[in-house]
Design a protein around this nucleic acid. Sequence first.
DNA 1: GTCTTCACACCTAGGTGTTAAGCT
DNA 2: AGCTTAACACCTAGGTGTGAAGAC
Lengths: 214, 214
Amino acid sequence: LSCCEEQGSPACSKAPQVGRVRVQLEMQALWQQFDQLGTEMIVTKAGRRMFPTFQVGISGMDPSAEYVLLMDFIPVDDKRYRYAFRSSSWLVAGRADISAPGRMHFHPDSPGRGAQWMKQTVSFDALKLTNNLLDDNGHMILNSMHRYQPRFHVIYVDPAPNSHLHAQRNFCSFSFPETQFIAVTAYQNHRITQLKIASNPFAKGTQGFYLWWI
Amino acid sequence: LSCCEEQGSPACSKAPQVGRVRVQLEMQALWQQFDQLGTEMIVTKAGRRMFPTFQVGISGMDPSAEYVLLMDFIPVDDKRYRYAFRSSSWLVAGRADISAPGRMHFHPDSPGRGAQWMKQTVSFDALKLTNNLLDDNGHMILNSMHRYQPRFHVIYVDPAPNSHLHAQRNFCSFSFPETQFIAVTAYQNHRITQLKIASNPFAKGTQGFYLWWI
DNA sequence: GTCTTCACACCTAGGTGTTAAGCT
DNA sequence: AGCTTAACACCTAGGTGTGAAGAC
């Protein structure tokens, strides 16, 4: 159960509509299973979903207030990685490539009332990852072989006039370390491939093949 | 291009947010093609989509005002029908059966701002028809072998206090005669079946069979 | 007889990893 | 070598009418 991350601001400077919001990562056990192996997420030119899907349960919102929910991805470090098959581990392979300006993914149900968001799990299953710098579909642009941390943001839609003057007060951010991943164009770690096949229904097609090897 | 139907009220008693709303039926040519043959819509216990889908283009809304959009179905008459295969025509087969209280189907994007609704075609493709009087999925309950007229309603969400006192002023209704249909559990008119197969992509499975007969 | 139900084959639509070929 | 691309087979998920069987 994650609280709002105060970003170096003095005391509690958040509006009550966001200051009490609590967020729980769903499918946490699965995320941890992947994290232990070193999560990889496929990026393609056309855009690829994440698996596991980023899903959260939310509490503490003002039921009648309006909120916008969104995600973004920040580089974890300034490094480029490569996978060493011999040692089955990731190695630093130099400094990070230049990155496209970070995009934001608004949850398609935004804006919505607190009651609606808290009613059931909020799922970002429409979000797609791409390595196409010229992407025109609103997908999240990431560099392959770089490490990322997904972030989740809650913005309170303040009806007050000049509310933009209090933008700081009206949003808060959450990030879960177990959702970190390295973007790849093809899986590197075979155990990641196996765990994806075992846990993603859509990857059931080739499941039979691996059952002999596990 | 249909205007708001004044329901026997004196002069223009509608709020400006709804009084200027204009609605255009999409796929009108297809609806007319079906209507000419006598449209039939399948009802099942589990719920069946309509085809053609009820879709409208909307103009004249206040872009920043909030609206709720919904549909319902009203019996066209107090009759029950049967199909005479010999004459390929519908005959009256007595008085209507007792009907379940009419349900409403809210468009899932409700409530939404005028700008959002007018941006693109509003489609009711999630709406399903059922003949199950005990339906628990929010589908529209209809009597098989009865004739219905779909209706479309626009409700302005008035932020004023006590706005419920002006409920009359804040909504308006639209109906398109070419969308009338008879609910059936199995198609009666073979030409309706053929037109459904020819025009609905999901019915492509058996298309080859009929190509020899047309 | 007339109407309804259900399993089914056949689609649409789109999410998977695989694999071979292509790029640098 | 290392990484990327694109076609592909194989799934999930669900919308069609069919035709035989069932209900009244």
